Amino acid sequence: MNYKEMYSILFNKMTDIIEEIQQIQRQTEEMYLESKDSGFVLLKSCKDSDHPRKQE
């Protein structure tokens, strides 16, 4: 068996698939941002002092 050729085929296909997924992600993010339903929500971070640790 030619492992170098097998690895090359696998690596190239995986790279193509990852690039396609990234492009789809960018496309859907743009669709979301352009939609009128895209409201941004700012979440407060939790501070340790706000949530005391449970006593053991």
Rank of each mutant, 00 (worst) to 15 (best):
M14P: 00
M14G: 00
M14F: 05
M14A: 07
M14L: 10
T15N: 07
T15G: 05
T15K: 08
T15Y: 06
T15D: 08
T15R: 08
T15F: 06
I17Q: 01
I17T: 03
I17F: 02
I17N: 04
I18E: 04
I18K: 02
I18T: 02
I18C: 02
I18A: 03
I18H: 00
E19H: 08
E19W: 04
E19K: 05
E19N: 09
E19D: 10
E19Y: 04
E19S: 09
E20D: 08
E20H: 04
E20I: 01
E20F: 08
I21W: 04
I21M: 06
Q22T: 04
Q22W: 00
Q22F: 00
Q22M: 04
Q22P: 01
Q23R: 13
Q23Y: 11
Q23E: 13
I24A: 05
I24S: 03
I24K: 04
I24F: 07
I24E: 08
Q25R: 08
Q25D: 01
R26Y: 03
R26M: 06
Q27Y: 06
Q27I: 10
Q27W: 03
Q27G: 05
Q27F: 03
T28R: 09
T28D: 06
T28H: 07
T28N: 08
T28E: 11
E29Q: 10
E29R: 00
E29K: 02
E29I: 03
E29V: 02
E30N: 15
E30D: 14
E30L: 11
M31Q: 14
Y32R: 13
Y32A: 13
Y32H: 14
Y32M: 12
L33P: 04
L33G: 02
L33T: 09
E34D: 13
E34S: 10
E34F: 06
E34K: 14
E34G: 01
S35V: 07
S35F: 00
S35E: 00
S35G: 01
S35I: 00
K36Y: 12
K36H: 11
K36C: 09
K36I: 10
K36R: 15
D37P: 02
D37Y: 12
D37H: 10
D37E: 15
S38P: 05
S38A: 13
S38L: 00
S38R: 06
S38E: 01
G39L: 14
G39P: 01
G39A: 13
G39Q: 12
F40P: 03
F40A: 12
F40I: 14
V41S: 06
V41F: 02
V41R: 06
V41D: 01
L42Y: 07
L42N: 07
L42K: 05
L42T: 03
L43K: 10
L43R: 02
L43W: 08
L43A: 07
K44E: 06
K44R: 08
S45Q: 14
S45M: 12
S45V: 10
S45C: 11
C46K: 13
C46S: 13
K47Y: 09
K47C: 12
K47S: 13
K47A: 12
D48P: 05
D48T: 12
D48F: 15
S49G: 09
S49D: 14
S49K: 15
S49H: 15
S49T: 15
D50C: 06
D50G: 00
D50W: 05
D50Y: 01
